[in-house]
Design a binder for these strands. Structure first.
Lengths: 356, 356
DNA sequence: TGACACAAATTAAGCGCTTCAACAAGATCT
DNA sequence: AGATCTTGTTGAAGCGCTTAATTTGTGTCA
């Protein structure tokens, strides 16, 4: 039990502070919200009382009276994925800079939990919402809009014009990855991915195809199908590839995720016939930064997570500030960046590893 | 602009619903909160009105009237670290199971932001708080307690008896890691860590020392100092080690983090003289799961993040439910688990890699 | 000195909900 | 038929705050 303080009431209200300071409740409110309206002397007295009694303003009462909040809700699919953690981070910094608080809801990729959080934030009358889903969420988005709640979509393209959206250019992700391999002399490119009709994968595939097409007839593309997008799927794909005769093994691999990329490297190395990057160059597409720290650092193309979060907040604040009817939904597509590491080129900055 | 719905008011209140359904506002409240008090017929009518008007209960008004919330605040240091993401995940599932909502605040390891979030949740009158900090936070904790807000500490040991606490047994983390190496025949154990006076590191060191002491005089321990706890620090440590004559290189390495462990593996392999795990076995201590997916899978000892989150919620709910003065703070220490992988033993389940 | 402006503090009307005492209208019992 | 319960519904009093309108108390000017 912590000893209760001076005022001896556990949750003193403005009323209590006012009595203690010998002023009216409105004055206490003014001291907190419009100090310029209050004389120095009273302000000091009131602040002393607040301090002494440990007064904490009741946010529920405040936002009820004022009719709005200063919180923004961010509902995202999977915190364990560093891209989402980055989105949250970027959004949070931008929100703080605008003097708003960001509240996080993690859906664990469960549409039901996602709806729960949307409703929770809706009931809390947040100033606005950011949604970074993994699945179609048009129903939820429309529900929020119908309630007059502004919402910005992050990292997922929903039907055009439904709401403001911030995306990474996934076609460019694939394009950069493939072009990098082609520029370093690879001729037999493989795109290793699952066949799921999952937005980012399809865009990346298109980008890879464009890069190969641009390269002309000297460069060939094949697609290697994996069941999923995890480390073990890459491992399996590598096992398949090593069964081939040497001249049929691709010399440049674009893995649709870093997890697959690392699996491929591990699989190829353990088989012991191919050197990386000499014989095979591997490039991943980053969804999760931490998968890039294997013993052969993986070249990767990454979405600008922090910036995406920041831009999303900016769009949201803009929409909130707009006069009713004045707002035009926008979709902002940001460019990925490439980090060249040892899995695709020999030498600097990281070192090369060859099998026994 | 979404077309406004039937009731044509953007945020209808209970008042509006009541009018539309031809009942009193109290009845609407009853339909929502105590349906058994209301006749079938009215309930149906009211629910229809709610549906038609898109009514959403105002949480601020509700919690103001009722004097309490059903939200729990979780303030944590760094979401990008998978242990914290796991804590959040575990806590969230437990909270949902108890019909409470978990709100996340990410402090980015900044004490100021941490205080902001504590105050935010304090003002929001959350039912309770979970705090997973990286630094001493006794001031914040005491402030919350003084305001009568229950708080449970996660993954950080603060002064005894300040509040309920959930920890992983870090001494056991070190002990398990070292004993595993010793049991697989290693004689020259190295503990690679930074010298920072950081709780978990110190505990792990003690555990390693205990395991070595138990092994008797055949096994020796040395400590290798790194500046930090990141990948590059491991890399640097490996470079140092490879300068030694073969018989002075440790044959079993406990890295105080997985990041260091992976760095060491990369460093040793690139130097090309030592095989892993044949010549050197490496074990990490997991703080971040994703650092374990390198091309040589790293044996690691991990805290049970999900369970820690769950237990923290249970402690909190227990404290909330307790009668004033009845509650005794408890500290619960959970045991880590070891995942044996290819960096410490040859063969199954993963494969071994040796340098060129 | 009275009219007027201005600063500082107060009064009071809500914000949208919950809850409880009070009440109406049958149903049930004596 | 009257007393007594039940069941369903409502009126009204807050919850703790904000804020417009108002009052009070100066100082200023003609």
């Amino acid at each position: 039990m912590p000893p209760p303080r001076a005022g001896n009431k556990i949750n003193p209200s403005m009323q209590d502070v006012a009595r203690q300071a010998g002023v009216s409740i409105a004055t206490v409110s003014n001291v907190i919200n419009r100090p310029e309206k209050v004389s120095q002397a009273t302000a000091v007295r009131v602040r002393a009382a607040i301090q002494a009694m440990g007064f904490v303003r009741n946010e529920a009462a405040r936002s009820l009276a004022v009719g709005s909040t200063t919180s923004i809700g961010l509902v995202l699919a999977d915190l364990v994925n560093s891209l989402f953690a980055d989105l949250a981070h970027g959004a949070q910094r931008a929100a703080n800079a605008a003097d708003m608080r960001l509240l996080l809801g993690n859906t664990l990729c469960d549409p039901e939990i996602q709806d729960d959080y949307l409703d929770l934030f809706d009931e809390a009358r947040v100033a606005g919402l950011l949604l970074a889903p993994m699945l179609d969420s048009s129903a939820g988005i429309e529900r929020m809009r119908a309630h007059g709640r502004q919402i910005v979509l992050l990292n997922y393209a929903q039907a055009e014009g439904l709401c403001c959206t911030v995306l990474v250019d996934n076609e460019m992700v694939g394009y950069l990855a493939a072009r990098h391999l082609i520029e370093s002399g690879r001729k037999r490119i493989a795109f290793v991915a699952s066949l799921d009709p999952f937005q980012p994968i399809e865009r990346r595939r298109e980008g890879v195809e464009r890069a190969v097409a641009e390269a002309g007839s000297g460069v060939h593309l094949e697609e290697v199908d994996t069941r999923g997008i995890l480390h073990e799927d890459g491992l399996r794909a590598a096992e398949q590839l090593t069964l081939r005769s040497r001249e049929n093994v691709p010399d440049g691999i674009v893995a649709v995720t870093d997890a697959i990329g690392n699996g491929i490297i591990q699989g190829l190395l353990s088989q012991g016939r191919l050197r990386i990057p000499t014989d095979v160059g591997v490039v991943g597409c980053e969804d999760n930064r931490y998968l890039g720290t294997g013993q052969i650092p993986l070249t990767t193309v990454s979405p600008p997570g922090l910036e995406m979060g920041r831009v999303a907040i900016e769009l949201l604040l803009e929409e909130i500030a707009a006069l009713p009817g004045e707002h035009q939904h926008r979709t902002i597509v940001l460019q990925p960046t490439m980090s060249v590491r040892a899995s695709s080129v020999a030498g600097d900055p990281d070192r090369q590893l060859s099998p026994a």
